[in-house]
Amino acid sequence: MQINYDYIFAGAGLAGLMILDKMIDARLLERKKVLLLETDVKNSNDRTWCFWDDESGDFDNLVSKRWKQALFVNEKQTIECLSGDANYKMIESIRFYDYVLDKLKKYPEIIWKKEKFISFEDKNSSVIVTSNIAKYTATFFLNSVFDVSKIENNIKYPLLKQHFIGWFVRTTNPIFDADCATFMDFSIQQKGNTRFMYVLPFSQTEALVEYTLFSPDLLPENEYEEAISDYLKEKGVTSFDIIKREQGNIPMTVFPFWKSNSRNVLHIGTAGGWTKASTGYTFKNTIKQSERVILLLKNPIIDFRKFHKPNRFLFYDTLFVRVLYRNNALGKKIFSNMFLKVNSKKIFKFLDEESNLKEELEVILACPKIPFIKSLLRFK
């Protein structure tokens, strides 16, 4: 006998588990049948999430490291970015997975099947979801499986990529300040792109050192690693061990994923456009978007077509992505102008979509004007 589920989730990553966590807190899973389709058992630390935040914030019990200082660097200046009670925080994914999955154990109606999501068919009154093993039916379907091929080579919505390789290193000599992170170090060669180093120290001899680009195209793997090695040498690191590596490719796009939402289907996470297009940051935005999902689920009549609410920040992100896509070497100048001319607290409010129009105008006027005016004139 086929079970009709109340909810099916394709993918049990950050977005899916965040929504389930908030559904538990809101008591929305009582007597509900839920199916999770996910092949990964989520028992390893497969990524880290970092974000700027107040000293006290959501999921502080999961934070493994926080920095009270963070720097923006170019070849001319070093700017302190955090002020007051602001912190830069790191959450290791395994701690988040363990936390949410432990809460889910109390709900036997939640079934986890280690199956690969293939497709879905919206029947208006229900949704049929197909895995590599079987077909399932649900009232509501939440999909976080991202298919990048749907947005590649899109002229109207160009795709920038935040791509990186990072080394977790242990050095012989003490070189790092364990209380001070480096958001962006643009003192490295740009080579016609937007390239910077990202450094998260854990002690005087241990850090994550990451070579990051905001650009349309990936590099050969050895180019990232040579850049990290050269950077460490320039910082006076004479000998080091690589404890582990991480690699990523985050889409930076304003593609309207929400247009694929329907009454019973909601695309979430990267597949729903929840990754901030101008930064690639996901964690805090996922918290906000998940809270909006919960508000919808509390309604007597649920309609996921009402989930997306366009705002002016989407317009700002659209201009930013188009400018960097057309002239990728401008990134250093854009970010340098912002941090040199605008108080960093206002910049973070702007990037978190919590600023007012006056603050936004201050950030916008700090950017190179001609490229953005040209992008605005092409805006359709």
Rank of each mutant, 00 (worst) to 15 (best):
1 M>V: 13
4 N>C: 09
5 Y>V: 02
6 D>K: 11
7 Y>N: 05
9 F>Y: 14
9 F>S: 14
18 M>C: 13
26 A>K: 03
27 R>P: 04
28 L>W: 06
32 K>G: 02
38 E>R: 11
39 T>E: 10
39 T>S: 10
41 V>L: 11
42 K>A: 10
44 S>T: 14
49 W>I: 01
51 F>P: 02
54 D>I: 10
57 G>H: 15
60 D>L: 05
67 W>I: 00
72 F>R: 04
72 F>S: 01
73 V>W: 03
76 K>N: 15
83 S>W: 04
84 G>V: 13
93 S>V: 01
95 R>D: 15
96 F>L: 06
97 Y>L: 03
97 Y>C: 03
104 L>Q: 04
106 K>H: 07
107 Y>F: 09
108 P>T: 09
110 I>V: 15
114 K>R: 14
119 S>H: 15
122 D>W: 15
126 S>W: 12
127 V>A: 06
131 S>T: 00
133 I>V: 13
138 A>F: 08
140 F>E: 00
148 V>D: 08
151 I>S: 01
156 K>F: 05
157 Y>N: 09
158 P>M: 09
161 K>S: 12
163 H>G: 07
166 G>W: 03
167 W>V: 04
168 F>G: 10
174 P>N: 13
175 I>R: 11
177 D>K: 13
180 C>F: 04
183 F>E: 00
189 Q>D: 12
192 G>D: 04
199 V>Q: 01
202 F>P: 13
204 Q>S: 15
205 T>M: 10
208 L>M: 13
211 Y>A: 14
213 L>P: 05
214 F>C: 00
214 F>Q: 00
217 D>G: 03
220 P>W: 03
222 N>Y: 14
225 E>A: 07
227 A>R: 10
227 A>N: 13
233 K>L: 05
234 E>I: 09
242 I>H: 02
244 K>S: 14
245 R>H: 03
246 E>H: 12
247 Q>I: 05
247 Q>N: 10
249 N>I: 08
258 W>S: 08
259 K>F: 00
260 S>D: 13
262 S>Q: 08
265 V>C: 11
267 H>L: 09
269 G>Y: 06
274 W>G: 01
275 T>D: 01
278 S>G: 07
285 N>W: 05
286 T>W: 06
293 V>C: 08
294 I>R: 04
296 L>G: 01
299 N>H: 09
299 N>D: 06
300 P>W: 08
304 F>P: 06
305 R>K: 15
312 R>G: 01
314 L>A: 12
315 F>Y: 10
324 L>R: 15
331 G>S: 13
333 K>F: 02
346 K>C: 07
348 F>Q: 03
351 L>A: 03
355 S>M: 05
357 L>P: 04
363 V>R: 00
366 A>C: 07
370 I>S: 05
371 P>S: 02
374 K>D: 09
374 K>W: 11
375 S>H: 07
375 S>K: 12
376 L>V: 07
376 L>H: 06
377 L>P: 09
379 F>D: 00
